[in-house]
Design a protein around this nucleic acid. Structure first.
Length: 227
DNA sequence: GCGACAG
DNA sequence: ATCTTGTCGC
């Protein structure tokens, strides 16, 4: 029960972020919206390293779930603020590999550019897999912001060091806003607009909301099944 | 130095 | 993230 994880030292992880960040691409203008967006999430079992990753394909026009993929595995890196990608990317890469076709765009549960070193989970995953990506987080991490207007679709800039690193978006009137940031090969304006479009009647947009639901269910069934 | 800190 | 049911309120 000693070093079964942290295959990578914290210093090596930071160097890896620097290397990958050189391949990051953020377009200055809008890009075409794909017909489907894939939501990703990971659920962990308390007190163990067992984890379940889920990938849910959602139709952008109807918000209907088209496909669900599950991967049962174990985390081999601890949770460290700023290094979340090293814990989740291996599991997310595995579950994405189980989809019938490569995603055109993925929505992650966490941050992209709005990160201490401008390379959060969404950016890391996007660059490593070579696919467009962005992040939608439920709570604040870095940056300052003004409270967005009260209605659905209203938003404000998330700023750090004088630069806009994300947008704080109200997905429904009367709910707490979510934190949106670009990941790879997509601009912030597109990410914010898509986040609102993909939000049905809940605070969390359908792709990641469904991924959360599916990963929790899969872990629950895994627990009861065997071991 | 101290506190904060995505999931 | 996770431990956890019902309950108050619109």
């Amino acid at each position: 029960m000693h070093y079964r994880w942290r295959v990578l030292s914290p210093d090596d992880a930071l160097r890896r972020q620097d290397e990958l960040r050189e391949r990051l691409e953020i377009p200055s203008g809008p890009v075409p919206t794909p017909p489907e967006v894939v939501g990703l999430d990971v659920t962990y079992e308390e007190g163990s390293e067992r984890a379940v990753a889920a990938a849910v394909v959602v139709d952008v026009a109807s918000l209907v779930v088209r496909e669900v993929a599950i991967h049962r595995g174990k985390a081999d890196f601890p949770y460290v603020p700023g290094l979340l990608a090293f814990r989740e990317v291996p599991l997310l890469e595995a579950v994405i590999g189980r989809l019938s076709s490569p995603p055109a765009l993925v929505m992650c549960d966490g941050y992209g550019l709005a990160h201490p070193r401008r390379f959060g989970l969404a950016s890391h995953l996007g660059v490593q897999l070579g696919i467009p990506s962005f992040g939608v987080a439920k709570t604040a991490f870095i940056g300052s912001f003004a409270e967005p207007g009260p209605g659905r679709g209203e938003s404000s800039d998330l700023i750090d060091d004088g630069e806009v690193i994300g947008r704080v978006v109200r997905t429904q009137s009367g709910v707490k806003p979510v934190f949106v940031s670009a990941g790879h090969r997509i601009g912030l304006a597109d990410c914010a607009a898509l986040t609102v479009r993909l939000s049905g009647r809940y605070r969390i947009p359908e792709p990641t909301r469904q991924a959360d639901i599916e990963s929790r269910r899969a872990l629950r069934e895994w627990r009861s099944d065997a071991q």
